[in-house]
C-alpha cells in the first residue's frame, strides 16, 4: 500500500468511522427539521426533493427596511453548519498528535495534507448522503412518493412557477453539495493556517453574512434556493458564477494551506 492510500485509510477510520456519534447527531437534527416540514400541511404528499428543498430554501435576498428585521433562516443555517463540526479540529489535533508520528515515518507532509483534503471532501459527501437517505426515509414513511419534484414545497410557499426536473436536482442537490464542499475546504484551510476556533467562527459568520448580503462572494448564498437568480426572478445570483467562484475558493484554500503546512512547525 502506498503512503497516500495508507494515510487515507487511517483518516477514514480515525476521522469518519470513529466520529459516528457526530454523524448520528447530525442525522437526528436534520430529522427534527424534517418533522417540522411534515407538520406544515399533513394533507400534502411529498417526496425527497420536497424535503431537500425545505432544508435548502434559505431566504429571499434581504432588503434592509424599517419593520423588516433580519432573521437568519435557521433550518438552512443548521444544515449547513453541521459539516463544520464534522471537520472540526481533526486535522489540527492529528498534526500535533499521532499524525506527527506518521509524518515522521512517511517523511512527507504533502501526503498528510492531501489525505486531509480528500478526507474533508468525503466527510461532506457522506454527510450529504445521510441527508438524502433521511429524506427518502421520510418520504417513504409518509406516502412513498419518490419522483423528482418539489410539489409540496411549492404549494406551501405559494410558488407556482414550473421548475424542470434537472433544475430541481441542481437547486436541491448539486449547489448545496458544492457549497458545503467549498466551505468545508475553506474551514480546513483556516483551521490549519490560523486555528480551529477561528475556522468555526469564520464559517458561521460567513453563513450569516451570506444570508444578509446577496453577493457572489458570499458562497453560502449558493446553497439557498431563494437566492438563486432563477427562483428569485432575477434578483439572485447567477448559477455559472457560483460554480466559478466555488472552484476558485477551493483552489486558493488548498494552495495556501498546503504552503502553510509545508512551512509550519509541528509541535504541541
Amino acid at each position: 500500500m502506498n503512503s497516500f492510500a495508507a494515510m487515507l485509510k487511517y483518516d477514514l477510520k480515525n476521522g469518519i468511522v470513529r466520529q459516528k456519534m457526530v454523524y448520528m447527531v447530525a442525522f437526528l437534527l436534520n430529522g427534527v427539521a424534517l418533522i417540522k416540514f411534515d407538520n406544515i400541511d399533513k394533507q400534502l404528499e411529498y417526496g425527497p426533493y420536497d424535503c431537500l428543498a425545505y432544508l435548502f430554501e434559505g431566504m429571499y435576498p434581504y432588503v434592509p427596511n424599517v419593520g423588516s428585521p433580519f432573521i437568519v433562516p435557521i433550518v438552512w443555517f443548521s444544515v449547513m453548519m453541521i459539516p463544520a463540526f464534522l471537520i472540526g479540529n481533526y486535522a489540527n489535533n492529528d498534526l500535533s498528535g499521532y499524525g506527527s508520528h506518521i509524518i515522521l515515518k512517511s517523511k512527507n507532509k504533502s501526503v498528510w495534507f492531501a489525505s486531509k483534503v480528500v478526507w474533508c471532501l468525503l466527510s461532506v459527501i457522506i454527510y450529504f448522503l445521510f441527508l438524502v437517505v433521511l429524506t427518502y426515509g421520510f418520504s417513504y414513511l409518509y406516502g412513498g412518493k419518490t419522483e423528482v419534484g418539489i410539489d409540496k414545497w411549492k404549494l406551501c410557499n405559494g410558488f407556482f412557477r414550473n421548475i424542470a426536473e434537472k433544475d430541481v436536482i441542481v437547486f436541491t442537490v448539486i449547489m448545496p453539495l458544492i457549497t458545503m464542499i467549498t466551505c468545508s475546504i475553506l474551514q480546513l484551510a483556516i483551521s490549519l493556517i490560523v486555528s480551529t476556533q477561528a475556522a468555526y467562527i469564520s464559517i458561521a459568520a460567513f453563513y450569516v453574512m451570506s444570508a444578509y448580503f446577496t453577493n457572489t462572494l458570499f458562497v453560502g448564498n449558493y446553497s439557498m434556493m431563494y437566492k438563486n437568480e432563477y427562483i428569485s426572478m432575477g434578483s439572485g445570483i447567477n448559477l455559472h458564477n457560483q460554480c466559478i467562484v466555488c472552484g476558485i475558493i477551493i483552489l486558493i484554500s488548498i494552495a495556501v494551506s498546503f504552503v502553510v503546512v509545508k512551512k509550519r512547525d509541528i509541535y504541541r
Partner: peptide, 26 residues
C-alpha cells in the same frame, strides 16, 4: 529516525500493536 518526544500521542481505542502497525506500514 525514531523519536519519543514528551508525552507520546497515540490512538486511544487502538491496542499497542494496532498503534504501531499503522506506523510500521510506512
Amino acid at each position: 529516525l525514531g523519536m519519543l518526544i514528551e508525552n507520546p500521542a497515540f490512538i486511544g481505542n487502538f491496542t499497542a500493536y494496532e498503534n504501531l502497525r499503522i506506523l510500521g506500514s510506512y
